[in-house]
């Protein structure tokens, strides 16, 4: 491990964080534009050409907002909760590869931050940790709506984590490795989504529930809970929750693309490795579009239905899928 290696890792980490935060800013714009088109509106178009400066304007506005802390809130945890929400969202994509390797300034650079042999387990670990921020935000606000929102989020995320885990095991079984680089490489002949459509569907639904996106955005159901766990948050603390939500959207799109949609693989990627990140970007953009489309189309489902669906439909299906995959793999692979 030489100095240049450490420098390379630091640069890659900073690059990843910048991409995720910049991506957050523009996914908000992307969502507003797409939603506007679906609802036959124009969407934000005042700040800059085609509204491209809208995220900047939003950011500046939020910086100048007053930061309120409720009188009887637990101040330490109230401040800690947004940070605890953003950090898992930022670090989860560390194991997702963007490409194979490129030569830059006479140095071969691998286009991934960490190729560890337990990458999928790392994803599960970070997902399970990400509940704390939301649960604590709800509790520390000393507000009934916020506490209820936090509790709902916790119950929902624990329930859907199981199905999510079982859906992520399927690509691991197919590839015979927990490393995401190996999983993407083993999708060279055919993407896993074509062999395992059910696993992809379960992954997608469970991931939507995991990041509290519509139609599973129970924790922040406006009609019942005002704004759920972040009711009492304002200014930059609110911006951090907002940021975490959109970064998680990007993260599940990247992970889903890598596990099921061939990741950075595409035509001519072996000859021209620089195409890898471009393919991944296109796939992520398409998955994000579907997520926004679902938000524009489906109403929120009721909370008890959501729990029943998670435990009685999604979880047994995911278990069955893993079982069938295992049997078939043994029969075929020998």
């Amino acid at each position: 491990m030489d100095g240049a290696m450490i420098l390379e890792w630091v640069i890659k980490s900073i690059f990843l964080i910048l991409v995720m935060t910049g991506g957050f800013a523009y996914v908000t714009l992307y969502e507003r534009k797409v939603l506007a088109r679906i609802q036959v509106r124009i969407g934000p178009n005042r700040a800059g050409p085609f509204g491209v400066l809208q995220p900047v304007a939003d950011g500046i506005k939020l910086i100048f907002k007053e930061e309120l802390v409720p009188a009887k809130a637990d101040k330490l945890i109230f401040t800690l909760a947004p940070v605890l929400t953003v950090i898992p969202a930022l670090i989860i994509t560390a194991v997702v590869p963007w490409g194979t390797e490129v030569t830059l300034f006479g140095r071969t650079i691998k286009l991934y931050l960490a190729d560890i042999n337990i990458a999928v387990l790392y994803l599960m670990a970070v997902t399970s940790i990400s509940i704390y921020g939301i649960a604590l935000a709800g509790w520390s606000s000393n507000n009934k709506y916020a506490t209820l929102g936090g509790l709902r989020a916790t119950a929902q995320m624990i329930s859907y984590e199981l199905a999510l885990g079982f859906a992520m095991i399927v690509p691991v079984m197919m590839a015979g490795s927990m490393s995401l680089v190996d999983i993407v490489e083993s999708q060279k002949p055919v993407w896993f989504v074509f062999v395992q459509p059910l696993a992809f569907l379960i992954y997608f639904i469970a991931a939507l529930a995991e990041i509290n996106r519509s139609p599973f955005d129970m924790p922040e159901a406006e009609q019942e809970l005002t704004a759920g766990y972040h009711t009492e948050y304002s200014g930059m603390k609110f911006a951090l929750f907002f940021m975490a939500e959109y970064i998680k959207m990007i993260a599940i799109s990247m992970i889903g693309s890598s596990l099921f949609l061939g990741g950075y693989r595409g035509p001519f990627v072996d000859q021209l490795p620089a195409l890898g990140p471009l393919y991944l970007f296109i796939k992520v953009a398409i998955v994000l579009f579907v997520i926004i489309w679902i938000r524009a189309t489906l109403p929120r489902i009721r909370y008890d239905r959501l729990m029943q669906f998670g435990w009685k439909v999604l979880f047994p299906l995911a278990l069955l899928n893993v079982f069938v995959t295992g049997v078939v793999l043994i029969l075929v692979g020998g």
Partner: peptide, 26 residues
């Protein structure tokens, strides 16, 4: 032992303690 380390985080820090926290809050 990276496997044990991440299982420790997933199971103990991520699931069991979340349930503890959930019950305390509830």
């Amino acid at each position: 032992a990276p496997f044990i380390a991440l299982v420790q985080i997933t199971v103990y820090a991520g699931s069991i303690m979340v349930l503890f926290l959930f019950v305390i809050m509830l």
